[in-house]
Computed example of a mutant assay.
Amino acid sequence: MKNLARLTLVMSLLWVSLLVQADPDAAAKYQSCAVCHGEGGQGNVELGAPALAGQGAQYLERQLQYFKSGVRGADPRDTQGLQMQAMVDTLADEDIPAVAAYLSGLPPAVPAGVPKGDLKNGNNYYQSKCGACHGGQAQGNSGLNTPALSMLNGIYLKQQFQSFQQGLRGTHPEDKYGRQMKMMSSSLPTDKDLDDVIAYIQSMAKPL
């Protein structure tokens, strides 16, 4: 697994070098984000920063705009959201689409570690509750404005799901898609079921 993670990082950095040549302005504007999210957009579990590489450009752009306008991170309990609001303020409005497209073009990260949970139970709940919107392989669906989940680490996935449950996300009147997730966050009966779904999502992550 360590070798796979190392190979993923090396391939990500090689791809970054190609993208820097293709769009040096977007690559330069991303550098302030790379401190937390990684040079290859692979995320950082210790910092609570999700992987961004390979995520849909439309979704990334919307979330950046949400942070900038205060739609996301508005709840004072959402400390990471407040941090992101401050960071996104360093980007000009016209830079957001370019940075989102740049990140979307990076190869997706593969979450480190072996998924722990009941994959059969996770599969049952995922396919009945989540798959219709997020895709059968957790690849996301741009037509439904849903993000890919398979490249996100389990800690971040659980934190965000619980943020919807607790109302830290999905309560702003302009967050239409967040309100849908707020409603869906009550669909898993127990924490164990949530852990099983997350384990199943991570089991679908594909190496490069």
Score class of each variant (00 low, 15 high):
R6E: 13
L7N: 13
M11I: 10
S12K: 12
L13Q: 14
L13E: 11
S17P: 05
L18V: 10
L19W: 00
L19C: 03
Q21E: 11
D23S: 14
D25W: 02
Q31H: 08
S32C: 13
C33P: 01
C36W: 07
E39G: 10
G43E: 03
G43K: 02
E46W: 09
L47H: 02
P50E: 09
L52Q: 07
Q58D: 06
Q58Y: 09
Y59T: 07
R62T: 06
L64I: 12
L64Q: 06
L64A: 13
Q65H: 00
F67Y: 13
G70A: 11
V71H: 00
R77V: 09
T79R: 15
G81L: 07
M84R: 01
M87V: 12
V88T: 05
V88N: 05
D89S: 10
A92N: 11
E94S: 09
E94V: 14
E94C: 00
P97Y: 12
P97K: 09
A101W: 02
A101V: 14
A101F: 08
L103Y: 05
L106A: 02
A109G: 06
A109R: 06
V110N: 02
V110T: 14
V114N: 11
P115E: 08
P115H: 07
L119G: 01
N123H: 15
N123E: 15
S128W: 10
A132L: 12
A132T: 11
C133F: 05
C133A: 04
H134T: 11
H134D: 07
Q137I: 00
L144D: 00
T146I: 01
L149Y: 05
S150Y: 03
G154Y: 04
I155S: 13
Y156T: 03
L157W: 02
Q159D: 12
Q159P: 01
Q160W: 08
Q160E: 12
F161S: 02
S163N: 14
S163M: 10
Q165G: 00
Q166E: 14
L168S: 01
K176E: 11
R179H: 12
R179I: 01
Q180I: 12
Q180R: 01
Q180M: 12
Q180F: 06
K182H: 13
M183C: 03
M183N: 08
L188D: 00
T190Y: 04
K192R: 15
L194V: 06
V197I: 09
A199G: 07
A199D: 08
Q202D: 09
L208P: 12
L208W: 00
